[in-house]
């Protein structure tokens, strides 16, 4: 039951993000969605991830988002203009996209309807890694290489952001 509450919060939150016309409301809805997600993590017996989700995403990153949105003073989207100019409102695109979305929904329903007898997911094979100490141990043993590669990934992202955003030299 709790699962449906949290999952519903997450889905409705993310739906609101894309449908709101005022970007500030979008950001707030995204925070609500993140809270729903972190509730799901708690249900999955991963309290550390849940806390990190709140602190880092809902806390730090979303505050930055909110600052940027407010500082840039992004204007409200003009509904009429949006309807006319946006490619998503072309009838052909809507029809094809709608058909594809329907197909995806059908496939998902098919897959879910046949998984009832599956059982035995990951939890049966792996003892839950929930404590921070245990998580740290796993991170620096089994996943050490992945952890180190992430540093190169972040380095590239940083260098790339600087290249694309810095002022042109005269």
């Amino acid at each position: 039951m709790l699962f449906y509450a949290f999952a519903g919060a997450a889905v409705i939150g993310s739906l609101l993000v894309v449908t709101q016309k005022n970007p500030v409301y979008s950001v707030l809805a995204l925070i609500a969605s993140f809270f729903g997600l972190s509730g799901l993590y708690v249900l999955l017996e991963a309290p550390f991830v849940a806390v990190v989700q709140i602190i880092i995403y809902a806390g730090a990153i979303m505050v930055l988002f909110l600052f940027v949105v407010m500082l840039l003073n992004v204007p409200r989207e003009d509904a009429a203009e949006w309807d006319r100019a946006h490619p998503l409102y072309r009838p052909m695109a809507v029809r094809i996209g709608g058909a594809l979305a329907l197909l995806l929904a059908l496939e998902l329903a098919w897959a879910l309807s046949r998984t009832a007898g599956l059982g035995g997911g990951v939890a049966d094979q792996h003892p839950a890694v929930s404590s921070v100490a245990e998580l740290g141990r796993v991170l620096f043993t089994d996943y050490m290489f992945a952890f180190e590669v992430t540093s190169i990934l972040i380095l590239i992202a940083m260098v790339g952001a600087v290249i694309l955003a810095k002022k042109k030299e005269e």
Binding site: Y143, F145, A146, V149, T150, I152, L153, I156, A157, V159, G160, I163, L164, K168
Partner: peptide, 23 residues
């Protein structure tokens, strides 16, 4: 998992190279 990280590393680099002529 590592393939995914590699994929992202490669892709980020190529995104940046694609847009490197900002003007």
């Amino acid at each position: 998992l590592v393939i995914f990280l590699a994929l992202e590393t490669m892709s980020l680099a190529v995104y940046v190279l694609t847009g490197i002529r900002r003007e």
